[in-house]
Amino acid sequence: MNAENNFNFKNSDHHFITPVSDDLKKAFTDLQAYVKGNPSKRIQVIGHYTANEKNNSAYPNLGLARANAVKNHMMSLGVPSKIIDTYGTLKNDLVPNADNVYFGPIDYTVKTIVAGDTSEADELKALRDKIITNPLVLNFKTGQTVINLTTEQRQKIADISKYLDKVNGATCLIVGHTDNVGDASENMGYGQKRADFAKKYLIDNEISTSRITAISKGQTEPIADNATEEGKAKNRRTVVTLKETN
């Protein structure tokens, strides 16, 4: 991709600065035509960030968030998401200008998939098994419907997002659960709010709401004894995983 300009980002921001330059628009138009004529090609978008930036995105690091912002722009121009891979890399030698803007903290590479290479399919199968075996579980305090996700939990969101992005027809299932404190019908509502909170994180990762099912089981499916505080804490959970297909 040939362009004199690149995407620019303000310090600690994962939304690129608009408007995008005309030569960058043309470069992506040319890229769309190139990948259409070369189906064996894959595009790798690498976003960079520095250690002193604050990550306010839904992603585990700001570089990955920036790469995904560029990926979404590419998708809006007709480049299929299935052929775009995104990465985030720490790069502390980046220096912002006087207006606190980083110029072009994005790199691109093009990878060729050799005929008969099953590494992509194998990677997706391994990712699916990883998500189902070790799903994202969010634990809430009594009455709580919003929490701050850890970097590890955000990585699980990113993994689910990646799988849904690459596999046509794949969907995500989010189930909110509660302990048995209070009214059962109110707990059903708490469970739904917790599921909807997780759903918003997926939507922030640009996953279509049509591919997400968010439901509540309230207090009906405990996994621990509600007679103890420890058991109640385990029951106040939201489980995010892939929806099984027959």
Score class of each variant (00 low, 15 high):
residue 92 N to C: 01
residue 242 L to M: 07
residue 229 E to I: 09
residue 109 T to Y: 06
residue 224 A to R: 01
residue 117 D to V: 04
residue 179 D to P: 06
residue 61 N to V: 04
residue 37 G to E: 13
residue 149 L to E: 10
residue 100 N to I: 08
residue 65 A to P: 00
residue 117 D to F: 05
residue 158 A to S: 07
residue 233 A to I: 04
residue 172 C to A: 10
residue 46 I to Y: 08
residue 186 E to L: 15
residue 121 A to P: 15
residue 107 D to P: 04
residue 110 V to H: 05
residue 108 Y to T: 03
residue 180 N to I: 01
residue 32 Q to K: 09
residue 111 K to R: 15
residue 234 K to H: 08
residue 9 F to W: 11
residue 110 V to Q: 11
residue 22 D to M: 07
residue 15 H to P: 02
residue 194 R to N: 15
residue 118 T to C: 15
residue 182 G to N: 02
residue 193 K to I: 12
residue 225 D to K: 00
residue 218 G to Q: 05
residue 150 T to Q: 04
residue 78 G to S: 07
residue 7 F to Y: 10
residue 204 D to C: 05
residue 7 F to L: 11
residue 115 A to W: 09
residue 139 N to L: 04
residue 134 N to T: 11
residue 223 I to H: 11
residue 225 D to F: 00
residue 89 T to F: 11
residue 231 G to E: 14
residue 64 L to A: 03
residue 97 N to Y: 07
residue 62 L to W: 00
residue 132 I to A: 10
residue 46 I to V: 15
residue 128 R to E: 10
residue 243 K to N: 06
residue 99 D to N: 09
residue 75 M to Y: 09
residue 155 Q to E: 12
residue 188 M to F: 13
residue 61 N to W: 03
residue 213 T to A: 13
residue 68 N to G: 06
residue 91 K to Q: 09
residue 53 E to T: 01
residue 194 R to D: 13
residue 145 T to E: 05
residue 157 I to K: 02
residue 56 N to T: 06
residue 231 G to H: 08
residue 216 S to Y: 02
residue 196 D to K: 14
residue 52 N to T: 14
residue 62 L to G: 00
residue 202 L to P: 00
residue 76 S to N: 09
residue 132 I to C: 14
residue 36 K to H: 11
residue 196 D to N: 09
residue 138 L to E: 01
residue 147 I to F: 01
residue 2 N to R: 15
residue 134 N to Y: 11
residue 164 L to Y: 07
residue 164 L to T: 13
residue 80 P to G: 12
residue 81 S to H: 07
residue 69 A to M: 08
residue 147 I to V: 12
residue 235 N to P: 07
residue 145 T to F: 01
residue 142 T to D: 14
residue 59 Y to S: 03
residue 58 A to K: 06
residue 195 A to E: 10
residue 70 V to D: 07
residue 121 A to S: 14
residue 113 I to V: 15
residue 32 Q to V: 08
residue 129 D to Y: 06
residue 93 D to F: 05
residue 27 A to D: 06
residue 140 F to R: 02
residue 59 Y to C: 02
residue 158 A to R: 02
residue 156 K to Q: 12
residue 181 V to I: 14
residue 223 I to E: 15
residue 64 L to G: 02
residue 178 T to E: 03
residue 206 E to N: 14
residue 104 G to I: 01
residue 185 S to D: 12
residue 78 G to F: 07
residue 164 L to A: 15
residue 19 P to F: 02
residue 149 L to H: 07
residue 105 P to Q: 02
residue 136 L to R: 00
residue 172 C to D: 04
residue 20 V to L: 13
residue 173 L to A: 09
residue 107 D to M: 03
residue 126 A to C: 13
residue 219 Q to G: 14
residue 76 S to D: 15
residue 238 T to S: 05
residue 77 L to P: 04
residue 220 T to F: 09
residue 77 L to K: 12
residue 35 V to C: 01
residue 28 F to T: 03
residue 87 Y to I: 05
residue 193 K to N: 15
residue 85 D to G: 07
residue 60 P to S: 07
residue 222 P to Y: 03
residue 158 A to L: 03
residue 154 R to W: 03
residue 36 K to V: 14
residue 123 E to W: 11
residue 149 L to R: 06
residue 205 N to M: 12
residue 70 V to S: 05
residue 93 D to V: 00
residue 49 Y to K: 06
residue 217 K to P: 04
residue 96 P to S: 03
residue 126 A to M: 15
residue 157 I to E: 02
residue 116 G to M: 01
residue 11 N to M: 13
residue 208 S to M: 13
residue 107 D to T: 10
residue 47 G to I: 03
residue 105 P to Y: 02
residue 190 Y to N: 11
residue 89 T to W: 08
